[in-house]
Structures are given as structure tokens and as C-alpha cells.
């Protein structure tokens, strides 16, 4: 006997917690808080999304795992430390994805292709091979549930790197030059929230494409190349 409890969209937030983000920690945590508050007011959309928040620096801190935002009232508090290891970030998602998908399926859900939203203000650590785990993560032969990756670069982030990280060029975004970083972070979370609500709604409407809203003050990375 099999029961079908519905279709879920796993969403992963990969937040850069490297030292250079320290001045903007307040905006980071405020953005998360706003995301949580909004999803509480959107129970129909929130029911179809499961949120995992990972903070990466030298290593990866797991703040929430497949959280159901209809019942999560307290957002995690991010903290900054160390350098910018994309390798650690992508390896963490790569390792946990099969487990997460299996867990949701075991609970009786069907699963849409996951979405990863990466926010970073810097260049990945030099000398670290982040491309290998990233390639494995994006290769649907290696990772059948390979996620759609939306890469948002702020401050010193390189448009070229964002283009490499994002799963399609339309998903690579960078804040406009001279943009206020605090505002850019805030608009990232506004766009993330909108994307989650819209994607949740579109799952409801039987059209399960990931809806990505461009954050205000961002432009397509491809425009910058």
C-alpha cells in the first residue's frame, strides 16, 4: 500500500558566514526573520516547502533541516567566522541531498527538484577545488535530484563565479555596483521569500517550475560579463 501525502519543494539556503560578512550579520539575520514571518502568513505555500538553512565559512553549520515553516516561529541566528569555502558548502549539500529526498519520500511525499539559494560576498577560497563537488551536485547522472541553484553575489563576489555556480545563466545574479550591501542582503531574502511563496503556489496550481524572483538591485550576472 502506498499513500501520497503531496508534493514538496526542498529549499536550501546557503548563506556565506565568512568573516567579511560580519558588518552585515544584522541584515542576514533580519532577512531570515522576515522570511520566517512571511511564511507563517502563507500557510498554503509554506505547506509545500521544506527549508534547510546552512551557513558556510571554513566549514558548514546546519541551522535547520527540512523545516516546515508553518510551525517554525524562531529563525536561526547566523554568525560569521573564517574563510569562504565553496567546496565545503557544495559537499554538504551533495552529501545530504539523497538522505533528505529519501526521508521525505519515506514520509509519503513526492519531491520536486530541490532549489538552492546561495548568497555570497566574496571569492571562494583560492586553492580549494570546489568545482568537483559542484559538478557532482549538478550532474543528474550522479545526483538524480540535482538541484536548481540560484547564485546571488554581493559586494566582492565575481559575476563569472556566480555564473559557474548557478545551474542556468538566468539564475546567476549580482548586486549592482555601489549597491548598499545591507539592502542587497535584504532584497535577497525578499526575493527568496517571494520565490518560495510563488513556487509553493505554483505547486498548488499544478505547475511545478521553480519561480525565481530577481532581487531588487540585482542584475543578471550574464549582463556583467
Amino acid at each position: 500500500m502506498s499513500d501520497n501525502r503531496g508534493s514538496l519543494l526542498p529549499v536550501y539556503v546557503l548563506a556565506d558566514e565568512s568573516g567579511s560578512m560580519t558588518p552585515h550579520l544584522g541584515e542576514l539575520n533580519k532577512g531570515l526573520q522576515s522570511l520566517y514571518e512571511t511564511m507563517l502568513t502563507e500557510p498554503m505555500a509554506a505547506a509545500k516547502v521544506r527549508l534547510t538553512v546552512l551557513g558556510f565559512a571554513d566549514d558548514v553549520a546546519t541551522y535547520t533541516e527540512l523545516a516546515d515553516l508553518r510551525s517554525e516561529y524562531k529563525p536561526p541566528e547566523l554568525s560569521t567566522r573564517g574563510s569562504t569555502s565553496y567546496a565545503a558548502a557544495f559537499t554538504a549539500v551533495l552529501n545530504r541531498l539523497p538522505h533528505d529526498i529519501g526521508r521525505l519520500k519515506a514520509e509519503g511525499y513526492r519531491v520536486h527538484r530541490p532549489a538552492v539559494f546561495l548568497l555570497s560576498d566574496g571569492m571562494p577560497n583560492a586553492g580549494q577545488d570546489w568545482r568537483t563537488p559542484h559538478r557532482q551536485l549538478c550532474d543528474r547522472a550522479t545526483t538524480p535530484a540535482a538541484p536548481n541553484i540560484v547564485a546571488c553575489g554581493i559586494g566582492g563576489a565575481s559575476p563569472e563565479v556566480m555564473l559557474e555556480v548557478a545551474s542556468t545563466a538566468e539564475f546567476a545574479l549580482v548586486s549592482k555596483p555601489a549597491a548598499d550591501l545591507g539592502k542587497a542582503i535584504s532584497s535577497f531574502f525578499v526575493a527568496l521569500t517571494k520565490s518560495m511563496v510563488e513556487s509553493g503556489r505554483s505547486l498548488a496550481a499544478g505547475n511545478a517550475e521553480l519561480i525565481v524572483t530577481k532581487p531588487e538591485g540585482f542584475s543578471m550576472a550574464i549582463d556583467e560579463v
Binding site: S7, V111, H112, R113, P114, P144, G206, N207, A208, E209
Partner: peptide
């Protein structure tokens, strides 16, 4: 399939 496809 590992993930749901909804192409229509």
C-alpha cells in the same frame, strides 16, 4: 524517478 517531473 528521483524527483517529480511536471512538464506539460
Amino acid at each position: 524517478r528521483e524527483v517529480l517531473s511536471s512538464g506539460v
